[in-house]
Simulated scan of single mutants.
Amino acid sequence: MSWFSWLRAKKPGLDATQQQRLAQLPKPAVLGDGALRSQRWVVVDLETSGLNLNRDQVLSIGAVVIEDGAVDFSQMFERTLLRAESKLSPSVLIHGLGPSAIAAGSDPVEALLDFMEFVGDSPLLAFHAPFDQHMLGRALKDSLGYRLAHPFLDVADIAPLVCPEASIREAGLDDWIDHFHLHVGERHHASADALATAELMLILFSRARQQHIDTPQALQARLSQWKRRKQAPSF
Rank of each mutant, 00 (worst) to 15 (best):
172 G>Y: 01
138 R>D: 01
92 V>W: 13
129 A>W: 10
216 P>T: 08
214 D>P: 08
132 D>Q: 09
90 P>T: 06
69 G>D: 07
109 V>Q: 14
42 V>R: 13
49 S>I: 01
70 A>G: 07
183 H>A: 14
24 Q>W: 03
135 M>L: 13
112 L>F: 10
52 N>T: 07
103 A>C: 00
51 L>K: 02
93 L>P: 07
69 G>Q: 03
9 A>L: 07
27 K>C: 03
137 G>P: 06
157 D>P: 05
109 V>R: 13
86 S>K: 00
121 D>T: 08
4 F>M: 04
121 D>Q: 13
213 I>K: 12
216 P>K: 08
136 L>E: 12
29 A>Y: 00
163 C>H: 03
73 F>D: 13
195 L>K: 09
10 K>S: 03
2 S>D: 12
144 L>H: 03
52 N>R: 12
88 L>A: 06
233 P>T: 14
130 P>T: 10
45 D>Q: 04
135 M>Y: 09
111 A>M: 09
207 R>V: 09
71 V>N: 10
4 F>Y: 07
90 P>F: 05
26 P>L: 09
99 P>D: 02
23 A>Q: 06
224 S>V: 11
12 P>W: 06
54 N>Y: 12
110 E>F: 04
61 I>R: 06
49 S>N: 08
207 R>S: 15
154 D>E: 01
176 W>L: 01
112 L>M: 11
130 P>V: 10
40 R>A: 01
3 W>A: 08
219 L>M: 15
124 L>V: 11
37 R>T: 12
198 A>N: 02
195 L>P: 00
99 P>S: 03
102 I>M: 11
33 D>K: 05
203 I>D: 00
134 H>A: 10
108 P>D: 05
181 H>K: 05
65 V>C: 14
75 Q>C: 15
140 L>W: 10
80 T>S: 08
1 M>G: 09
67 E>F: 11
93 L>H: 15
12 P>N: 02
99 P>R: 09
123 P>L: 08
115 F>Y: 07
185 G>W: 07
27 K>M: 03
108 P>Q: 07
4 F>P: 02
86 S>I: 03
41 W>V: 00
